[in-house]
Write a protein that binds this DNA or RNA. Sequence first.
DNA 1: CTATATGCAAAGTTTTTGCAATCAG
DNA 2: CTGATTGCAAAAACTTTGCATATAG
Lengths: 139, 139
Amino acid sequence: MAEKGLKATTQRIVIYDALMSDCSHPTAETIHELIKISHPTISLATVYKTLETFVEYQLAQKVSTVEGTYRYDGKTEEHHHIVIDETNEIIDFDDEQIKALMKAHLAQKNIENLEITDISIQIRGRKIDANKTITINKF
Amino acid sequence: MAEKGLKATTQRIVIYDALMSDCSHPTAETIHELIKISHPTISLATVYKTLETFVEYQLAQKVSTVEGTYRYDGKTEEHHHIVIDETNEIIDFDDEQIKALMKAHLAQKNIENLEITDISIQIRGRKIDANKTITINKF
DNA sequence: CTATATGCAAAGTTTTTGCAATCAG
DNA sequence: CTGATTGCAAAAACTTTGCATATAG
């Protein structure tokens, strides 16, 4: 579990589980709400601290959106995000090819003095049918 | 100037000019600092309100980064951002081809129920030589 | 045991709001 | 004139911190 040199405290396990099972890229506040039912004594400060610890130890990622709050993502594998315009809902978008495609494209651009560490794609869009979910079909 | 149905107040003009002449994607606070010298009476609240108005009227864009604050961008044309790891400095990256490239790629993915409204690429990286600037050479 | 992590409450930041006064059209 | 905009100060929202207590290894 959290054996990356991190003490496996109840709080960390609970927060980790909550983060992993919530695909909606929750905020610290949201996670606190989620776990409050089963663990009412875990403080919001601990949630903040713990999430930052996870980011530091690469157990989670911080996602930035054009809202005012930090969001966290339990997926550490390479993936991108689709953000829905009206709701700011975030949907994961796995695509291993994008990065290579972009790197190849950028290589042609000769950008001087920059070593690229990460490329991320944010797709914004709206649901055509607001009631249906968005499905990404691999093939 | 701000003839999009917006009253051209001194405050708006000053804030607009500050935003356009600052390529560093300033925060509201930064803009307030910038204009304080010449217009000490413009309040921070007005800067916040005005920038939001600009976004609403598409005279500016909000940029999201993994910092805690909003940043604004005076460029409304299509462009992408390079964020420098250590400093969170933001550099504009014009590239008209990326969007088409991505759209073509995404079209193959048949994503159901999504109408894409915007695609933006964020490149993270570090400066190879911290003292030199990053240059993007077109050819 | 001991160093690390937690909980609390307090403080720090950043952003928004209500409202009277002001100003552009 | 009149409705939109501003400035102020107060509030809200979000995040961090210090320190005493608790706990995993």
